[in-house]
Nucleic acid binder design. Structure first.
Lengths: 114, 114
DNA sequence: TTGATATATTCCGATATCAACATATATTGC
DNA sequence: GCAATATATGTTGATATCGGAATATATCAA
């Protein structure tokens, strides 16, 4: 067996930085393939193929208009990633809290020493 | 060129579901390799190799104790993923808000119709 | 020391990836 | 219909992956 296909799920799809950059480049609105080529600096076939992967996992949606294709981010498709990562968020917040506590204590010590 | 190494960054490391399951299986505390073998149902070499990848990107930290190795999740290493995904969170919240609005309107219509 | 336990590493074969380049498929305007 | 534009698809070669099986390394226990 080999590595999971990039089209298996959003986790695999966004592993490639070029695809994350494409999603960033699309941003809030819509973008055309050639606009993305200009923004991201990849060749047109590269952009089309990466968009194909993003399409396969529903991370982007397309609206066809003549010979243009308007791509937009389908943010909810990122939710599985969001949810999975968030299950660890408490863990690192606790650590940051502890760091805050520690810094607080150090400051108090400093105050005392003054 | 081929796909980025799994050890390139946390995005690539967590693309593999086995590694996400390992992180889940470790959970809040610490776990030993053989505990993880039992919990996740992979072979020992598989677990060790996946842990090796997670180690390479700092997603897990190890404490050696005799012939045991206690692994724990290094949650802050997930922050880049959290941050990137969060930059799209507004987008999908807006959509959910709109959905709420829509549902609200539909309810009002229903109320009217009554 | 010897054997057992815990974990890591190596080798293999199959597979999917990715960039690059070439080419195919629409669609528009003349 | 024909050229031009916008986008998608196919081919090739290099590479890294993954599971499986075997094996290496280290530590404990008797």
């Amino acid at each position: 067996m080999a590595r999971s296909p990039t089209t298996a799920d959003p986790f695999n799809a966004i592993a490639e930085s070029a695809r994350r950059e494409l999603l960033d480049a699309i941003g809030e609105g819509e973008a055309t393939v050639s606009e993305l080529v200009d923004r991201v600096g990849l060749t047109q076939p590269q952009v089309s193929k990466h968009l194909g992967v993003l399409r396969a996992v529903d991370l982007v949606l397309v609206r066809v208009e003549g010979r243009h294709r308007w791509y937009r981010v389908n943010a909810p498709a990122l939710k599985p990633i969001h949810d999975w990562v968030q299950s660890f968020e408490r863990a690192w917040n606790i650590r940051l809290d502890r760091l805050d506590d520690l810094l607080g204590e150090l400051q108090q010590e400093q105050e005392k020493g003054k």
